[in-house]
Amino acid sequence: MSEPDTRASLRITEIFYSLQGETSRVGLPTVFVRLTGCPLRCTYCDTAYAFTGGRSMLLTETLAEVAQHGARYVTVTGGEPLAQKNCLPLLQALCDAGYQVSLETSGALDVSGVDARVAKVLDIKTPASGESDKNLWGNLISLNPQDEIKFVLCDEIDYLWAKQVLDEHALASRCEVLFSPAQGQLDPTVLADWILRDHLPVRLQVQLHKLLWGNQQGK
């Protein structure tokens, strides 16, 4: 693997330090690097502010700002981080620097080039998202046991659809699977009852950061 180009630049909406609110790393102090831009427009998106704007930063500048927080864990997110070609060298550079790195991606873009040390969190889009036709199913073959698959569910139709996908693709045998209720659209208790009723091999995920800080940006 060649060294990443430290002169590479990225468009970054924000870099901040907080608790990881999702995935199996929930609760861990983490630095978040939120890249600007996304080709999708999910109905429940809570980071539309990252679609445009941001600031241009060199890879070296990004690494320096991440280092200021003194954290062990780093999450690269968006928007859709893989929409920027220099996301891949950023991920490699973060791994090379000794961080435990995760990538939050929509699954609509190819993940095969992502550094194998990165824990990929693949968000499979459900019908209510309005973007389910963008799912790149070939991405499933690039998943490793350290990776995770996430479904954001808006209603029972989404749940039944995700349940079918879970079974058809044997997702739970590939990696951990997360079922997350869309905020304000699906009661977490209702989703919990469905999961228990159907004995699904999935983890119920609620967004810890929203329970703690609401919908504040940079949290």
Rank of each mutant, 00 (worst) to 15 (best):
E168L: 13
S106R: 06
P81Y: 06
W161V: 01
Q146D: 10
E22L: 03
L212C: 07
D198V: 04
A93K: 05
C87N: 00
S106C: 11
V101W: 06
F51E: 14
E176Y: 12
A67R: 15
G214T: 02
G54Y: 12
Q84S: 03
A119E: 15
L143C: 10
P181N: 07
V190K: 14
L28C: 12
W194K: 10
L94D: 09
C38H: 09
L178A: 01
Q100T: 14
M57D: 06
A116C: 11
G184R: 07
F179A: 02
V202T: 01
P145I: 01
R197F: 12
R117A: 13
N86V: 03
D187V: 04
A172M: 07
V152P: 03
D5P: 05
W137N: 01
P89W: 10
S18C: 03
I12Y: 02
T23Y: 14
L109K: 09
N144W: 12
E148R: 04
Q146G: 04
S56H: 14
T75E: 14
A64H: 14
F179I: 07
V114P: 12
G107Q: 05
T36H: 11
P145N: 04
E14K: 00
E61L: 01
D5L: 08
L88I: 14
T60L: 13
V101S: 10
E176P: 03
F16S: 06
Q216F: 08
T126I: 00
I157K: 13
K125Y: 04
V165G: 05
V26A: 14
Y73D: 12
S132A: 14
C175F: 01
D133I: 01
P188V: 04
R197D: 15
E131P: 03
W137P: 02
E65K: 15
I195N: 11
T75W: 07
L136A: 04
N215C: 04
W194H: 08
P127Q: 00
S9Y: 09
L109W: 10
C95F: 04
G54E: 10
V76K: 09
V152G: 08
K219C: 07
A128Y: 12
L140S: 06
P81E: 03
L90G: 06
P181T: 06
T105Y: 02
T189H: 14
L35R: 07
Y159K: 06
D110R: 02
G107M: 07
G78P: 01
L186N: 06
E65H: 13
V202D: 09
E61R: 07
A50C: 11
A162Y: 12
G54F: 08
R117T: 08
Q164A: 13
Q68R: 15
L136P: 01
I141W: 14
C175R: 00
L143S: 10
T60C: 09
T36D: 11
W213Y: 12
C95N: 11
H209L: 08
V206K: 12
Q207M: 02
D110P: 01
E80K: 07
E14Y: 08
L19W: 11
A192G: 09
V190N: 05
S2L: 13
I124R: 03
E131F: 02
Q92T: 15
V206L: 12
Q146P: 06
R117M: 07
V31W: 08
L82K: 06
H169I: 00
R55G: 05
E156P: 03
Q164C: 06
P89Q: 08
N135K: 10
M57A: 11
G27V: 06
E80A: 02
N139R: 05
Q207A: 06
L109G: 01
V118M: 09
G78D: 03
E14M: 03
G107P: 03
K150N: 03
